[in-house]
Amino acid sequence: MTNGIGRAAGALLTYGFLGLMAFLSVFPFLWMALGATNSSIDIIKGRVLPGAALATNVSTFFTQVNAPLVFWNSAKIAILATVLTLAVSSLAGYGFEIFRSRQRERLYRAMLLTLMIPFAALMIPLFIMMGKAGLINTHIAVVLPTIGSAFVVFYFRQCTKAFPSELRDAAKVDGLKEWQIFLFIYVPVMRSTYAAAFIIVFMTAWNNYLWPLIVLQSNETKTITLVISSLASAYYPDYGVVMVGTVLATLPTLAVFFFMQRQFVQGMLGSVK
């Protein structure tokens, strides 16, 4: 009897705690979505109910912002960065794990060390490099520095540890060359690793703020994150419009995440069963 009560109390506590945490993580999203339907004044007053200003906010957003161009810029950068990063970094991760040597280990460690350098320290040298190369205010300049991602190389190397060497041996016996093994054996087997990395890299690229801010100079090249930042920093920001922008900017990452969720979870658990 007491045991039952104890268990019920325990469950209540557990669910209460989980519920609270769920609420805390979902609430900002909820407020963002509701904010898009309210006027700026209502948002400041703290209204968290659906309002009637959605149509006004949306139309103000689309008159103030050249949305198709801005989203196209963001999408172009994010997709290009993701595809290139995955191609380069997965090759590197594969290479580091399969073809080991003492020198390569040193190189690998040196590469991991770069994870510890904050971007703010790299910003000005990188900017000078891009300036010398004549790439300021181009999307190439945004994408280039992200391609060789130490974190993604590290992630691929860790996952490659689970890639069975028997598969490689068998493929070799069947006469496949190294690039064929990578392309036709490794890539399909590591599908979920790629999916997980895709989500991570895509989200980072889509939300990237500081570097695009520094290197992009004109209204024609700006990404959605920069546009939202400038909307939100007006002397009297129209928060309803900012929320519309934020909701729209969140949709692509949400879509990517839900689309690849199953693979993502598998990728996190380890890809090869």
Binding site: M123, I124, F127, L213, I214, Q217, S218, N219, L226, S229, S230, A232, S233
Partner: peptide, 15 residues
């Protein structure tokens, strides 16, 4: 070209 105020400062500083 409009950026956020802190962004203008950041870009000017870097430039």
């Amino acid at each position: 070209v409009d950026f956020a105020k802190s962004d203008v400062e950041q870009k000017l500083q870097t430039g």
